[in-house]
């Protein structure tokens, strides 16, 4: 299983980014191979509109099954749902902490977008 966490860094110790569409990037952790992959989101983050849905497409293309993020808007949520990706909300400080909480089953799945979309 591949887990994508929103972050601005490139290691497990990096801080989590609470935003989804405008996060600097994603760390995708493969629980089977234990391989950590850095996925850049710079192009989407700077786009004038639709950052969230494009970020969702990027995550889907990276093969993620799970997304852990602070907040996810309605349009991005729709794409993630369509791609069969489960969204978990998490307020952890670092990527490692977030993965830990997920492993212990302490994170709740988001059943809906938890923030309003930024119309931009």
């Amino acid at each position: 299983m591949k887990i994508a966490v929103t972050t601005s860094g490139d290691s497990l110790a990096a801080p989590m980014d609470s935003r989804f569409g405008r996060a600097a990037g994603f760390l995708v952790y493969d629980t089977d191979t234990k391989v950590l992959q850095v996925v850049d989101n710079a192009q989407n983050l700077n786009s004038a509109q639709g950052a969230g849905i494009q970020a969702a497409q990027t995550v889907a293309e990276a093969g993620a099954n799970v997304v852990i993020t602070g907040h996810c808007g309605p349009k991005a949520f729709r794409v993630l749902q369509a791609a069969g990706i489960t969204v978990y909300n998490c307020e952890a400080a670092t990527v490692q902490e977030a993965l830990g909480l997920f492993g212990e089953g302490k994170l709740l799945t988001a059943s809906d977008a938890d923030v309003e979309g930024h119309w931009s």
Partner: peptide
């Protein structure tokens, strides 16, 4: 319209 929507979200 768009500016009002952009002002209100969040």
């Amino acid at each position: 319209g768009c500016t009002v929507i952009a002002s209100l979200t969040g």
